[in-house]
């Protein structure tokens, strides 16, 4: 273990500012949210704030609309993440192969573009490109003889569209993380393995995979958290519609809290979301990171 014990004051000096900052900025509002969630607290009826115990929680837990939104969020994660990992791994392996270095540098640079793009802009771009009439995508599809697709106005298509943009934006991220992981494999081990077997997946499974696990874990944690947080892109692309077909959990809470102004109910929803998030990240970090360490 490469760590030393230090004086308490030193410890506080190093850690204190961060802990204090996050406590003040993160925890105080959180406590306030808990307080709000136990009240009838409507922004447009602040005269009638009253303590109602766990009624808001009971409403949330039995509200099918809430769980449908939650379900959609996990459906998105369940479909998009495997595709992102598969494509990302493919791209990483491709870029990891020797040769064509100019083109590969170019590819690496273009991979940076989607992940740096402002999320809200992605949604706006989606509106412009996938518009049924003025959109370039339907035009391109037309070239290969496909009839115009109603992307934004059809519930299933709209959800597919969300998945598409999520994949567009985050596959590069996964690819770059895995590529970075591949470069940590000691060259001599990889060479030796490649001499021994011709099958690339054997190399992948037994030689490269162990070095990819930390990256994959990070991807899993970050993507899960970010999907639960996903708001900007969907907000600007579909606003949750048509119907409720793309109303993810953050959009729903935003709608209840900032459009119907029922802050008490929205806080209860947010806190349930937070609990789910914490349980999931606990699971990921404890299970997966232990395996690594």
């Amino acid at each position: 273990m490469s760590a030393v014990s230090v004086k308490r004051s030193t410890l506080i000096g190093f850690l204190g500012p961060s802990i204090f900052a996050l406590l003040a900025i993160g925890i105080v509002p959180l406590l306030y949210a808990v307080w709000t969630s136990l009240h009838y607290f409507n922004l447009t009826k602040l005269k009638n704030v009253e303590f109602i115990g766990i009624e808001n929680y009971a409403t949330v837990l039995t509200d099918s609309v809430f769980w449908q939104a939650m379900g959609r969020t996990f459906t998105l994660l369940g479909i998009a993440l495997p595709i992102q990992i598969a494509l990302g791994l493919g791209i990483a392996l491709l870029l990891h192969q020797p040769g064509l270095s100019f083109l590969k540098t170019l590819t690496r640079l273009s991979l940076v573009l989607p992940m740096a793009t402002t999320y809200a802009v992605v949604g706006l771009l989606g509106q412009v490109m996938f518009n049924i009439k003025y959109g370039v995508i339907n035009q391109l599809l037309g070239f290969v003889g496909i009839e115009p697709v109603n992307w934004i106005g059809d519930p299933t298509n709209a959800f597919a569209l969300i998945i598409f943009w999520d994949i567009w934006q985050w596959t590069p991220f996964v690819a770059l993380v895995l590529l970075a992981g591949l470069t940590t494999v000691p060259a001599e081990i990889e060479e030796a393995a490649k001499l021994e077997t011709k099958r690339w997946y054997t190399v992948l499974r037994y030689v490269q995979l162990p070095f990819l696990i930390p990256g994959l874990t990070a991807v899993l944690i970050l993507r899960t958290a970010d999907t639960l947080k996903l708001f900007d892109m969907v907000f600007t692309l579909t606003r949750g519609g048509p119907g409720a077909s793309t109303e993810l959990i953050s959009l729903m809470i935003q709608r209840v809290g900032f459009r119907a102004f029922d802050q008490g109910l929205a806080s209860a929803q947010a806190i349930i979301l937070l609990i789910i998030t914490i349980i999931l990240s606990q699971l990921y970090i404890r299970l997966l990171y232990k395996e690594v360490g």
Binding site: K45, V65, P155, G241, P242, G243, A244, R255, R259, A260
Partner: peptide, 22 residues
């Protein structure tokens, strides 16, 4: 009345669901 902002959200959600045939 003051409750319209809450009610309109409900109308919007279910109104579109009806139109979509859901």
């Amino acid at each position: 009345f003051a409750e319209w902002p809450e009610i309109t959200e409900i109308v919007q959600e279910w109104g579109t669901k009806i139109m979509l045939g859901e």
